[in-house]
Amino acid sequence: MSHKRHQIGIFLLRLFLGFTVFIHGLTKFKIGMGNTSIALESITIPMSLLYSIGIIEVIGGLFLMIGFKVQITSSIIAVVMLLSITQLKLPIGFLGTNLRAGFELDLALLSIAGFLALDGKTPFAIENITFQSDECYKCPEV
């Protein structure tokens, strides 16, 4: 695979993860945290933790979409997805039930976040413009 296609693939993964996480966080605030906690009736999550997760998702999603602190943000998102899987959705199963989604999307988002956290270099990111360092994503000379 050419290097340029590889860069575009990483960029698309970052955008997908950022947009998906952002929308999920925004939805938590739009429908209200009380309704979100009702949807999670099988467990008891403190309301402060729900707000924290919502804020992490909204801000983290924005950071990922613009490409700011991608490695740190992806690591935090990976932890949130891991908690979602283990604390909420594992008992429901991979595909879930007629009433509740399983952990298939969370696992996909965890995989993308893990890749971005480990890779650390992402193309078309604002951090490559504003913070010139050795970690900036550069095309190798061919």
Rank of each mutant, 00 (worst) to 15 (best):
V80A: 10
P46L: 07
S37G: 06
I38H: 13
G114T: 00
F124I: 11
S37E: 13
M81E: 00
F29Y: 07
L95G: 07
G25K: 06
N128Y: 08
G18T: 04
A113R: 12
D106H: 00
M81C: 10
V70G: 07
F63W: 10
Y51F: 09
A39F: 15
M81R: 03
G67M: 02
G96R: 05
G96H: 09
V21E: 03
Q87G: 07
L15Y: 09
S48Y: 09
I45G: 05
S52A: 13
G32A: 11
S37F: 09
F29L: 14
M1Q: 11
K121P: 09
G34Q: 14
G34N: 08
K69G: 12
V79G: 03
E127I: 04
V79T: 02
T36C: 08
I59D: 00
A113Y: 06
T86K: 05
S48P: 10
I56M: 00
D106T: 10
E135W: 15
K28A: 11
S2P: 09
R5P: 04
Y137K: 11
P91G: 01
T86N: 07
N128H: 02
F16Q: 07
D134S: 12
L17P: 09
F22E: 02
K121Y: 13
G114H: 05
G18Q: 00
V80G: 01
S48W: 15
V79N: 03
V58H: 00
E141Y: 06
T36R: 07
V70L: 10
A101L: 13
F115A: 02
L88W: 09
D134H: 13
G93R: 03
V142C: 14
Y137P: 04
F103W: 08
F68K: 10
S48I: 12
G120T: 05
L49G: 05
G114Y: 03
M1A: 15
L82F: 10
G54F: 04
I43T: 12
L13D: 06
I10G: 02
N128L: 05
T86H: 02
I31E: 14
S42M: 13
G18R: 01
R100Y: 01
L12C: 09
G93W: 09
L116I: 14
S133N: 12
N98K: 11
K30F: 12
K28E: 11
P123C: 00
M33R: 04
F22G: 00
L107A: 01
L13M: 13
F94N: 05
